[in-house]
Amino acid sequence: MGRMHADEHAIDTTLVRRLVRGQFPLWADLPVTPLASGGTVNAVYRLGDSLTVRLPLTAGGAGDLAKEARILTALDGLPVAVPAVVALGEPAEGYPWAWAVHGWLDGSPALEGRDAPARDLAAFVRALRALPADGPPTRRGKPLSDVDTATRRAIEELRRTDEPFDAAAALAAWAEALEAPQWTGAPSWVHADLMPSNLLLRDGRLSGVLDWATAGVGDPACDLIPAWNLLTADTRHTFREAVGADDATWARGRGRALSMAVIQLPYYRHTNPVISGNARHVLTELGCRPARGGGARLE
């Protein structure tokens, strides 16, 4: 990983040890281990065997910390595990923001293009939607037109790079998504950031879902993005059938996946290989990049 953000705060193991020792002396002697992560908002460290420490990299990420803690303490009845909020730390040792200690969840992050439990993922999405929609609105649950300018700007930026990229195909797919009817049903809970690195697998089953900072109430199409950022054509239709997505919701979900990918790729292509690699996977699945063994179909 390189430095991802111009305003990113320097964080290392020494800082984490000092913060833990100063505020939670009970854990002062536990080993602190940096975790390889594709995350763009927090630096994550394992603390002993049963805890993780999450420190926002920027002021924007710090603003979501309290919201995420409220959401995590309120969730109940999901078929997979979510992180337990164990403690919240305060600014200290030159670190300017609040930070969090969560319970450790066993499992390995999902990987795009590999076998993934489409039915488990659909069951999680449906269970989340079934919860009382009493949470805060999520910015990703708004109409796609809200990100039209940013998406078109990112497509143009990608067009000017050396990425193998079909801008015309991306614009056509984006126009199709914008034309889809908007959500008129009741808002529902959405995670809104179901990237593969936020999905934990154990023994081939979905066991946990991480990173709830963007969660809230909005358009359920937000949580269809794994159809393109994780799954392949072989399992995509299984997921769609199990999750019960109509044509309009499916089209909006496809547009959301496209928008995220074209915005992520130019920003992270030299600093975050996990996120940029996933963006390339999405664009390939959407037919906007050359695919190994032939072109991808827009589904």
Score class of each variant (00 low, 15 high):
residue 1 M to W: 13
residue 20 V to T: 04
residue 21 R to Q: 12
residue 22 G to I: 03
residue 25 P to I: 00
residue 26 L to F: 04
residue 30 L to M: 14
residue 30 L to V: 07
residue 32 V to D: 05
residue 33 T to E: 15
residue 36 A to P: 02
residue 39 G to L: 02
residue 41 V to Y: 03
residue 42 N to M: 04
residue 42 N to K: 02
residue 44 V to T: 15
residue 49 D to W: 02
residue 49 D to L: 07
residue 49 D to T: 10
residue 52 T to W: 01
residue 54 R to K: 14
residue 61 G to D: 09
residue 62 A to I: 06
residue 63 G to F: 10
residue 68 E to I: 07
residue 71 I to N: 04
residue 72 L to D: 04
residue 76 D to M: 02
residue 77 G to I: 09
residue 78 L to W: 07
residue 80 V to Q: 10
residue 80 V to K: 05
residue 81 A to T: 08
residue 85 V to F: 10
residue 86 V to D: 03
residue 86 V to H: 08
residue 90 E to M: 07
residue 90 E to R: 15
residue 91 P to Q: 12
residue 93 E to W: 08
residue 99 W to C: 08
residue 102 H to C: 08
residue 102 H to W: 14
residue 102 H to T: 13
residue 104 W to H: 11
residue 108 S to H: 11
residue 108 S to P: 03
residue 109 P to T: 09
residue 111 L to Y: 08
residue 116 A to R: 03
residue 118 A to P: 00
residue 129 R to A: 15
residue 132 P to H: 09
residue 133 A to L: 10
residue 134 D to W: 03
residue 136 P to T: 13
residue 139 R to A: 14
residue 140 R to D: 12
residue 142 K to F: 02
residue 143 P to V: 06
residue 145 S to W: 05
residue 145 S to R: 15
residue 147 V to S: 05
residue 148 D to N: 13
residue 152 R to M: 09
residue 154 A to T: 01
residue 154 A to M: 02
residue 155 I to E: 11
residue 161 T to H: 11
residue 162 D to E: 12
residue 163 E to Q: 14
residue 166 D to A: 13
residue 167 A to V: 12
residue 168 A to V: 10
residue 180 A to T: 13
residue 181 P to N: 12
residue 183 W to S: 06
residue 184 T to F: 12
residue 192 A to S: 14
residue 196 P to R: 01
residue 196 P to W: 13
residue 202 R to Y: 00
residue 203 D to G: 15
residue 207 S to I: 00
residue 207 S to G: 09
residue 211 D to A: 00
residue 213 A to M: 07
residue 217 V to A: 14
residue 219 D to G: 09
residue 220 P to Y: 07
residue 223 D to Q: 04
residue 229 N to C: 08
residue 237 H to T: 15
residue 241 E to I: 06
residue 244 G to N: 11
residue 254 R to A: 15
residue 256 R to W: 11
residue 262 V to S: 04
residue 263 I to V: 14
residue 264 Q to S: 14
residue 274 V to R: 03
residue 277 G to P: 03
residue 279 A to Q: 01
residue 282 V to D: 03
residue 286 L to F: 09
residue 286 L to N: 06
residue 286 L to K: 06
residue 292 R to F: 12
residue 296 A to D: 10
